[in-house]
Design a protein around this nucleic acid. Structure first.
Length: 222
DNA sequence: GCCCAGGGCACTG
DNA sequence: CAGTGCCATGGG
């Protein structure tokens, strides 16, 4: 079990929120779904699979292609051929693999209604849905209190606080030390990613970082 | 040309 | 259970 870090974690959240503002993840095109009578939560799920190890900008191109074809929904994915789907999502990379994952997902879960009844364990059985994707779906599409861990989160937690661990360990660390608040879960994950994209990159920009005074990495404590 | 990005799976030791 | 190879595009 990791040491308690309630105050430290909350302070980090507040600092990031003040610095970067609300991120409002996960983005969905509400207008598109209003016009086409589809559910924006299905776009969240589709985006979650498309963004696996991929730049969000590339995912946006793929989502635009799906919108152009009016198939940005579970039903739309189900009714398009695997070949055409793969071509449409090509900008997101790993496109043949992701086309299979999407096709499989909408077979297991015909609609958001079916998905609402699922559990984390059930999601993890679906081929193409690992821990992070499952937690993204649970948190951002289904509004469940399930904290998302990704490569950025692992990197920031290690550099800043010297905390290491596998996925479930880090997930528990956040969930045990944060208030059970959907907004906090959603924003905190998004803010961590934003911070790592801007400053805490693989080659970190420590000199310009507003967290350096409290960072173990910067202070050579790792 | 190189490196990286909002991972996951299959296989190996 | 840790390590490795593979999947692939687009931007810096």
């Amino acid at each position: 079990m990791l040491r308690s870090g309630k105050r430290e974690l909350i302070e980090l959240y507040k600092t990031l929120l003040k610095e970067y503002g609300e991120q409002n993840w996960w983005p969905a095109d509400e207008e598109y779904h209003r016009v086409h009578g589809t559910d924006p939560r299905e776009e969240v799920v589709i985006g979650a699979i498309l963004t696996q190890n991929t730049n969000w900008k590339n995912v946006e191109k793929a989502l635009e292609n799906l919108k152009r074809e009016k198939i940005l929904s579970f039903e739309g994915i189900r009714n398009v051929s695997s070949y055409k789907l793969a071509e449409l999502i090509k900008p997101a990379g790993f496109y043949r693999q992701k086309a299979k994952y999407l096709k499989n997902f909408v077979t297991v879960y015909p609609s958001i209604g079916e998905l609402e009844k699922t559990t984390r364990d059930e999601l993890l059985k679906v081929k193409g849905v690992g821990k992070e994707t499952a937690d993204v779906i649970l948190l951002y599409a289904l509004n469940r209190l399930s904290f998302v861990i990704d490569a950025y989160t692992k990197r920031l937690l290690f550099r800043l606080m010297g905390i290491q661990g596998d996925y479930e360990t880090l997930k528990s660390f956040f969930e045990n030390n944060l208030p059970k608040d959907l907004k906090v879960y959603k924003e905190f994950h998004a803010l961590i990613d934003e911070h790592c994209k801007r400053l805490c990159k693989k080659k970190p920009l420590c000199e310009t970082c507003f967290l350096k005074e409290r960072c173990r990495f910067f202070n050579n404590l790792l």
